[in-house]
Design a protein around this nucleic acid. Structure first.
Length: 163
DNA sequence: TTAGTGATATCC
DNA sequence: GATATCACTAAA
């Protein structure tokens, strides 16, 4: 059973402590352990980009688990998400932080991730590795940066951090 | 606290 | 075609 087949909130928690392996076009390999994630859980979640329907941009969220969703925010920052859950169910986990880079925009800068990886499957330029490490504790708290969502959705504790 | 940056969505 | 918005960061 793959972690990414789980519903987004469970997958987000399980991904904390796993290792991202980024292989650059020139062959350089970068490794970074995930320290912080957030879950975006389907059309019913008003914080999820897909809550306002399927568009060209959110199309990727409807793909099968393990697809990468990368998009530009505020004109400067790339956001890295892993699609989870069943196909045609728009769930994803945002990678908010890894060891050595705290913050979603910094993660992608650190790993040299941009739109070239959008809509590509995990296992190519970016892979996930489980080295058996388990964080001593994983803290859950409300998500940040989603002031446009409904109050109920803003309150959901779908942000997970290694503790 | 606020400027910076550009793709996307939504409205003419 | 035009404008408003945005899952953020760095500098002040």
């Amino acid at each position: 059973m793959n972690i990414l087949d789980l519903p987004a909130p469970e997958a987000a928690r399980a991904l904390v402590g796993k290792v991202l392996v980024r292989t650059l076009p020139d062959g350089t390999v970068l490794r970074a352990r995930i320290t912080e994630t957030e879950a975006y859980f389907g059309e019913a979640d008003t914080a999820c980009h897909a809550s306002r329907g399927r568009t060209k941009r959110t199309e990727v969220l409807y793909r099968r688990a393990g697809t990468l969703y990368v998009y530009l925010c505020y004109g400067i920052h790339w956001m890295l998400n892993l699609v989870t859950g069943p196909e045609n169910d728009p769930q994803a986990v945002l990678i908010r932080g890894v060891e050595g880079a705290s913050g979603p925009g910094r993660v992608t800068k650190f790993l040299h991730i941009d739109k070239a990886l959008n809509d590509t499957p995990l296992g190519g330029g970016l892979a996930l590795e489980d080295d058996g490490y388990v964080p001593a504790r994983v803290d859950a708290s409300p998500r940040v940066g989603i002031g446009y969502a409904s109050p109920e959705d803003q309150a959901r504790p779908w942000r997970f951090r290694a503790g």
